[in-house]
Design a protein around this nucleic acid. Structure first.
Lengths: 342, 342
DNA sequence: CATTTTAGTTTACGCGCGTAAAGTTTTGAT
DNA sequence: ATCAAAACTTTACGCGCGTAAACTAAAATG
């Protein structure tokens, strides 16, 4: 590789023997130039390492190749994983993804969107905080920037929503638990987002469909430290004897993992096997659920499909422009993952 | 707020009654203009919402206000937390942080650095993959961009290293375990980074200092899925009866959490209390360690200080330029966190 | 082969802002 | 009030690239 440094596209064009406008065209879409031309450019690209200046490139373009990814809480490996998945898909499609986390803070969420504006993104994939979100601010942002919501819905905001069918997911867990033992009571997480309520309601529906009486246990706790809530709330529940069943269905796996720690501390043996005191199940198939003590029975969210579908929806939106059709909602079904805890 | 939209600094300058070069100066450093002028600009800023175009701003500046943060594996909440901490500090200092994760892949790590180059960052905070890292590529990057390494060191690369004193950390855990029960054997993680080796060597040193014979247990496994390694490796160790002590010190908490799951599955009772079969301890005070079954005794890394010190070192580097002095290494001590497991 | 189509070249302008130079006003110390 | 220093205004240029227009060369069509 020749080390004489190329300062700009002008120079690179001259060493590659192609005019600058054509080189510019190549970088915008390599397929838009003749194969022979493309070959010459790429040959030069091998010899000299030149990259167009990001800032100059984006200055004149009304629409950049930037894509914003915003998640509510990055310290949750679930979001880290889904972000990774989305990032890769975006890069493969030639976009430049940038990852942001609201860290559970709605003020920060709005700040992120404001910052994102100045990135002039072609589109944004947003998993909103949920109830805590500043609806008006997000709505305004979505007016200006093509935005796909995922994971957590805000009714009527954004160009589409991709997520899980929480009703089906909870239905599945309830049915499984009912078939394999006592009907579950429901250990509810703090309702930070609409999914929390969907799951509680889904539980109630599913129980009633089975002719059983729903039993919802709600504990104190706010924010995104679900393990903390599951642990301390769990200790509280156990010490006060509030459990109405020996089968506990938790709204999500992080809550369940905290609850498992509480059970262990209280000397309760959790599992579906004979001689166990309690069965515990969760939802999401969180990355750490398979390493619970015991390993956690749960319903897996199809986050491969959620990320795939989200990115697809965004690209369709970017290419096709905003349609006046109805807002698209796509919900994916969950799958039962049987492990030791229930 | 007046909604007539301001398109550029020219227009904003005219509505604020200040000339454009002065407004430009203000945005680069609000303190550099006369208080009266500043007040007029900020008054206009309240009425009209204008932000300088990021791309235009950065195009002419040799040095931007961008800061890159690169972590090896974002699905590890430890890195998510430290990234959050660093992000906030950077933003407070008026920088624009961008977060990247190598997702355990050295190819991606190099790609990230290449992308970062085109962001013309004022500086970069890099937690390298470690052994898997492409040393030459990182070295070359550090020649061009002021870079602080943190968490995991690469000898002689970058302008400084900020991390934990792994020797002290392991010494602390070994001493504690020896004083409270049988001397520990050491369950080693796959050596993905130099910290792994530092910890093993630290263990051996600490044991010998106590006049005891070190016992290192090494299992198969690669990559960053430490829980997986701890779990499967743990099952293997237990089934083959390879443990040389009833006290197991794990190189880190994630490995330990996996091992706890294995112990649970084998029906072993872990803890420091009477009647327990095994004591288990880890290192790092990982966010999830307090929710283990049992809660995990560990040595906490001082990641508040690590992030604070990393950012400080970077800012000093950015402002002061690179000195010819020796590379700065700062190591912080760990603190014992006594929980139920040992 | 002549003709149309496609792709590339040349030339030129503009994006929004940093920044330098020269001139003007304000400030604050004497 | 006097005057130098500090701050501001005006003017002007350049950053690196997108992109449009007018022209020319190459490829595809018949």
């Amino acid at each position: 590789m020749d080390d004489s440094k190329i300062r700009n596209m002008e120079q690179f064009a001259s060493v590659s023997g192609i005019s600058r406008p054509t080189v510019s065209k190549y970088f915008n879409d390599p397929g838009s130039v003749r194969p022979k031309t493309r070959a010459r450019i790429e040959e030069a690209l091998e010899r000299y390492d030149y990259r167009p200046n990001m800032f100059a490139v984006n200055q004149n373009r009304r629409l950049t190749k930037n894509v914003g990814i915003v998640v509510p809480y990055l310290a949750d490996p679930f979001f880290a994983e889904i972000a990774r998945n989305i990032e890769q898909r975006c890069m493969q499609a030639g976009f430049w993804p940038t990852l942001f986390s609201a860290h559970g803070d709605s003020t920060l969420e709005v700040e992120i969107l404001d910052s994102l504006r100045s990135l002039k993104p072609a589109g944004v994939l947003l998993a909103p905080l949920g109830r805590a979100s500043d609806r008006a601010a997000i709505e305004k942002f979505c007016d200006d920037v093509p935005t796909i919501l995922f994971d957590s819905n805000i009714e009527g905001v954004g160009d589409a929503f991709i997520g899980s069918d929480n009703t089906q997911i909870v239905r599945l867990s309830v049915d499984y638990l009912c078939r394999t033992g006592d009907a579950p009571c429901f250990f509810e997480m703090p309702p930070v987002n609409p999914n929390a309520n969907k799951r509680r309601n889904g539980y109630i529906q599913a129980m009633e469909a089975n002719g059983l009486e729903p039993q919802v246990i709600r504990v104190e706790g706010t924010g995104w430290g679900f393990e903390e809530v599951g642990y301390h709330g769990g200790l509280d529940i156990l010490s006060k004897g509030l459990l109405t069943s020996d089968t506990v269905l938790c709204s999500n796996d992080r809550l369940a993992m905290g609850f498992l720690a509480a059970c262990y501390e209280r000397g309760l043996r959790v599992g579906h096997a004979k001689g166990c005191d309690l069965r515990v199940a969760g939802h999401d198939d969180h990355p750490f659920s398979r390493f619970g003590s015991p390993t956690l029975t749960t319903i897996a969210q199809d986050y491969e499909k959620i990320s795939e579908s989200s990115v697809e929806a965004l690209f369709a939106l970017i290419e096709g422009g905003r349609s006046d059709g109805p807002r698209i909602d796509r919900l994916f079904k969950g799958k039962l993952v049987m492990r030791a805890s229930a």
